[in-house]
Design a protein around this nucleic acid. Structure first.
Lengths: 137, 137
DNA sequence: ATGACTGCAAAATATTTGCATATTC
DNA sequence: GAATATGCAAATATTTTGCAGTCAT
């Protein structure tokens, strides 16, 4: 029931109302939202919410690996609930970002001896099925 | 001798002094610079250069696939001369970005039927050899 | 009660735009 | 000479910061 709240406590993060709502939002929405989107959507339920709090909160979540930050967009950051390793595809037409499961060795280690590999990010761009079929029709 | 100039002409881009210098800079420097870095470095030789021109010029180059845009940094864009497909590694300590050759199938197609795949971006983060050995020493 | 969190507003940073001047062919 | 490119400065957009007031435990 209080999974999100417990998750915060487990990570040593004080479970305030705003933090719970923001993390809940990310868990429920796999849309990789911008800060602006999070703000607009949560504003309805949490009218006192400010963007500064969202930025601060996301930064804390990131440090605890509760959320991932995507740099896939060229103009602003996208955030997602951390539900394990996967990649992303952004549609050039509608702009939506979807998760992609890719089997990919990412065999960098043999190439770069002596390097410490900590993060692997991959993303793809193109046209999604919806926009593709819409154009063809 | 005028390879860069010819390259611009071939692409239907008017080869102005600024454009030649910017593209030359990117060809000679594989440091994946920011606009700020390009500006600081070129300012010495091209004192009249403005950042607006750099932004405009890079946008033109991008449209002609002469340069690639990297979103690997969370705060600003990085640019590189387009010398074929490869990936990137950014060091968490020194911030430098290096090219990485990775054999990776990126077998997304079987996963996302009906999608048009146009771009593949992959980047890695961690600690580079220099910073790694420096820390150990 | 106390220490941390929030919200506001201002600041900082990155990028884009409008327009007069300068440059290219 | 005509058209386009440049440079400046202002505008825009995103993210960060300082501080007074509020909230959770």
């Amino acid at each position: 029931m209080f999974k999100i709240k417990d998750l915060l406590i487990q990570n040593g993060i004080k479970p305030t109302f705003q933090r719970i709502k923001i993390l809940e939002y990310l868990q429920k929405n796999d849309t990789h939202p911008t800060v602006e989107t999070i703000y607009s959507d949560l504003y309805k339920k949490v009218p006192t919410l400010s963007k500064a709090t969202i930025y601060n909160t996301l930064d804390i979540f990131r440090k605890h690996s509760l959320v991932n930050v995507l740099t896939i967009s060229e103009t602003e950051m996208r955030y997602e609930f951390n539900h394990g390793p996967h990649h992303h595809f952004q549609c050039r037409v509608c702009g939506k970002i979807v998760d992609v499961e890719v089997e990919c060795p990412h065999s960098m280690k043999p190439v770069l001896e002596g390097y410490i590999l900590e993060e692997v990010h991959s993303y793809f761009k193109g046209v999604c099925r919806n926009c593709n079929t819409a154009q063809s029709a």
